[in-house]
Amino acid sequence: MATGGRRGAAAAPLLVAVAALLLGAAGHLYPGEVCPGMDIRNNLTRLHELENCSVIEGHLQILLMFKTRPEDFRDLSFPKLIMITDYLLLFRVYGLESLKDLFPNLTVIRGSRLFFNYALVIFEMVHLKELGLYNLMNITRGSVRIEKNNELCYLATIDWSRILDSVEDNYIVLNKDDNEECGDICPGTAKGKTNCPATVINGQFVERCWTHSHCQKVCPTICKSHGCTAEGLCCHSECLGNCSQPDDPTKCVACRNFYLDGRCVETCPPPYYHFQDWRCVNFSFCQDLHHKCKNSRRQGCHQYVIHNNKCIPECPSGYTMNSSNLLCTPCLGPCPKVCHLLEGEKTIDSVTSAQELRGCTVINGSLIINIRGGNNLAAELEANLGLIEEISGYLKIRRSYALVSLSFFRKLRLIRGETLEIGNYSFYALDNQNLRQLWDWSKHNLTITQGKLFFHYNPKLCLSEIHKMEEVSGTKGRQERNDIALKTNGDQASCENELLKFSYIRTSFDKI
């Protein structure tokens, strides 16, 4: 039985969820670079991206490699990797027998973001014989899940209580170790020597080791999670996991709180800001991140802002960003909400898709409305799209047979046209069989910064309504002859009103 693990408890099935942008060198404390989270699957090609990484700022997932063999891993080693800020997950990587050479110096898994409450997941690794993470000293947050690894031993010899604050939620089941077939031998045991430290858990006094050649490092209890030197002297209180010299914040392997210019500090002093819960960055760093993602459509890219001495992905609820200094300031009234469309555009074809934009005031991208039916549609669209004030790209209304009016965009005031449909149009209306009105132009103002209007096959939309939009939106004169079809717009509506004058002759039985 794995020490510190839980057996036999019912657990939810383990679901495996399925960018080499360097964020800056980590400095003297770390020998390499800070790398983003990685999802490495199918083959070993991307694994080489770990070569210079000291910190993975995010998670590391290595999974679904069915053609790899043990010899493929023999020359692979990433000794610079010290810390993973989120979680480490391995799933069905064939041929991998140990992690001792792959990650010989991995010391800390912070667990800032977890995989279903777990910071370390080893699942269905069919050839893994031992973990071998002999320098792993601290899992700051989260638990361990090690399950269905039929060859995995050296679990009962690990004292997880020396690595985690609590072992109650560890789930370590259905491994070879369960069948008591392992016969784990710690260093020196074969020669009758006791080389590794022994600890007591559940009444068992057991030597602690990761492999037959690597003991588990056990520091004096007084050192807590700070770690200790090879001689057993406690590291500085700002260290986490390990250090090369005692009581020196510049000799830590990793930091308990924050890293700044080669030393570990309790908090980031001005003019620095907390970033990702582990390091200090200056304003320029946060500003660069903001600008890199301002026009990016890459998933996970955030326009970072500053709030409460932190550089964070977005302002919290009730705050909006001051564009001059990136500071989050309290909103006066309802907060603006910028919604970034991942692929640059979004099609609204149902109430469900409209709900995804609920509360958005600025759309960074283009909207395509293609709704053919739905219950209580006008009210639903207004509830979900009615706060949109600005669209950076274009607005396209296409084959939306259920629409009679666009009044559900009740606050839309600006279409920038930074991206144009077919390279020309910022407003595009095609084949809307029941569209009769755009907006009530006596109450609604709309500016279209650039781009043209396109109207074709809107049989109940009168040309007068379209011409009014040209005047109000500032697009009059931009359109070419064929942009607004004269014969297919309003051709099934009563669009022309003329005053009919009647004269009559009164007659009676005795007068003409």
Rank of each mutant, 00 (worst) to 15 (best):
F283T: 09
F103Y: 02
C252L: 00
M137C: 15
V55T: 10
C235L: 02
C264W: 02
I185R: 07
Q61R: 09
V167H: 11
I82Y: 15
F275S: 06
I185S: 03
G32H: 13
I146L: 13
S225Q: 06
L174N: 08
T140F: 06
E314Q: 04
K224M: 09
F123G: 01
K129F: 07
C196E: 02
R256W: 04
P79D: 09
P246Q: 04
F115C: 02
N195K: 09
N242F: 08
V108T: 12
T320R: 10
R256L: 12
C301N: 04
E97P: 03
N170Q: 06
N175G: 03
C243R: 00
P316E: 15
E238L: 08
V253Y: 13
K310P: 02
A198L: 08
E147T: 06
C219A: 01
V200T: 04
R298S: 11
S213E: 09
F283D: 05
K310Y: 09
T199Y: 07
E97I: 14
L63K: 06
Q276E: 10
Y134N: 03
H48D: 15
V253G: 07
I109G: 00
Y304M: 09
V305R: 13
L327D: 06
L120S: 01
I306F: 14
V121R: 02
C209A: 02
R162H: 10
N149G: 08
Y118F: 11
M137V: 11
S317E: 04
L99K: 01
H236S: 11
H274V: 14
H307I: 06
L152Y: 00
E181N: 15
N325T: 07
F275D: 01
N195Q: 15
N242Q: 08
N117Q: 09
C252T: 04
D177V: 07
W160K: 02
G262T: 13
D184Y: 09
C235N: 01
N325C: 13
K217F: 07
F116T: 01
G232S: 08
C255K: 01
D165E: 11
I146Y: 02
G58I: 00
K224F: 07
V108W: 09
L60N: 00
L60K: 00
A254L: 13
G111R: 00
L102P: 01
L47M: 06
P79L: 05
T250W: 13
L164S: 12
K310H: 04
L102I: 05
C335T: 04
V173Y: 11
F275R: 02
D39W: 12
K191I: 14
I158E: 01
E130M: 14
G318P: 05
L76H: 05
S317K: 14
A254V: 12
C182K: 01
Q276W: 05
P270L: 10
K191L: 08
L44N: 10
P31Q: 15
C331E: 03
G192H: 05
V108K: 06
I146Q: 01
I82S: 11
D261E: 09
D261S: 10
T157Q: 04
P187S: 10
S77F: 15
F116V: 01
I109S: 00
L131V: 15
T211E: 15
D178M: 10
F275E: 02
G142P: 00
T45S: 05
P79C: 05
K176R: 09
H214Y: 08
D165R: 05
R92Q: 03
K148P: 00
R74G: 15
P197V: 14
G203L: 12
Q303I: 04
H236K: 04
H290I: 09
M65W: 03
E180W: 11
H214Q: 13
G203S: 10
C228Q: 01
C219E: 02
N117A: 11
V265Q: 15
P79S: 08
G227Q: 04
H212P: 13
T267S: 08
R279T: 09
M83R: 01
S225V: 06
